[in-house]
Amino acid sequence: MIDIILLTLLVVVAIAIIRMKDLFAVVMLLGIYGLLSASFFVAMDAVDVAFTEAAVGAGISTLLMLVVIAMTGRKEKTNRHKPLPALCIVLITGGLLIYGTFDMPHFGAADAPIHQHVAPRYINDSMAEVGVPNIVTSVLASYRAFDTFGEVVVIFTAGIGVLTLLSVARRKEDAEKISSINDSMHEQHLVIRIVAKMLIPFIFLFALYVQFHGDFGPGGGFQAGVIFAAAIILYAMLFGLNTARKVINQTFIQLIAAVGVLLYGSVGIVSLMNDGNFFNYNVLASDPIAGQHLGILLIEWGVGCTVASVMMIIFFSFAGRLELHQHNERVKNQESS
C-alpha cells in the first residue's frame, strides 16, 4: 500500500515540476522527487539503491543545480512554444506504451521470468561462491564487477569532462582577493560552523563504516565516496572554498580519482597475471573465498576513492565558477558605480 501512495506522490511531484516556473522550486521539487523515489526503493527492498538515490538524487544533484541556478538566474521564461502538439504526442506514446504493458508479468509475481533465470544462482550460491552476505554487493563487485568498473569509469569521465568545461586558470593574486571576500561572507554562520566542525569527523567515520560494511549491509564504495565528499563539501560551503582548497589540494584529488580507477583495474590485471580471467578474484589468494574478499575489498576502495574525489572535483569546479561569477559581477558593479 505504501508503495502506491509513494508512486502517486511521485506523479504529483512530476506534474508540479512541469507546472512550476520558479527554477528554485523546481529543483527543490526534484530533490523531493529523489527522496520519494528513494523511499519507494526502500519499500521495494532495494536498500542499496535507495541509499544511493537519496545521496545522489536528493543530495548531490540538487546541490549542483542550486549552484547553477545561482549563476544563471532562477526564473524560467514563459515560452511561445505551443505545448499542445508535444502534449498530444506524449499522450499518444504513453497510451501506446500502457497498451503494451498488458501482457507484462505482474508486479511482485514470484513466477516472473526474471526470478526464474540467472538471479536464483546469485541468491542460492553467492554465499558459497563469493562469501558475502549482501547479494547486491557480491553481484556488483564480483559477478558483474566489470559493469561496476564501467560505472567508475563513467564517473571518472564525468569528472574530467566537468574539469575541461569549468576549470579556471586562476592567478595567485586573484585567489587572494576572492578568498578575502568569501571569508567575510561566512562570518555570520558561526553557530553552523561550530556544529559542522563537530559533525564532520563523524561523517568521515560514517563514510568509513559504509565503505567497510558494504559486504554485510547496504552500502559500499559508491555510497561511502559520496558521503565522504559530502563532508568535504559541507566544509567548503561553511569555511569558504579557499580554505577547503588549502586542506585538499586540487591536483591531489584529481590524482586520487585516477588512482581509484587504476586500483580497480589493477585488481583485474593482477588476476590476469595469476592466470585467471580479468577480475577473477579466486586466483588472488590461495583460498578462493579469501581471494574474493580481498578482491572486493580492493575494488570497493577503488570505487570509493574515485567517487569521493570526482564528487569533490565536480563541486569545486561548480563552486569555483560561481565564485568567479560573483567576483566578476562585483567588479562590474564597482566599475559602474
Binding site: G100, T101, D103, P113, H117, V118
Partner: peptide, 28 residues
C-alpha cells in the same frame, strides 16, 4: 527484454526470446 527473459547475456537472450517473442512487451 530482461523482464521477459531474466537474462542480460546477448546469446542467452537470443535463445530465450523466441518463446516470448509474440508479446507486446517484446514489441515495445
Amino acid at each position: 527484454i530482461y523482464q521477459m527473459t531474466g537474462t542480460l547475456n546477448m546469446y542467452d537472450l537470443s535463445q530465450r526470446l523466441p518463446e516470448v517473442a509474440q508479446t507486446r512487451t517484446v514489441f515495445a
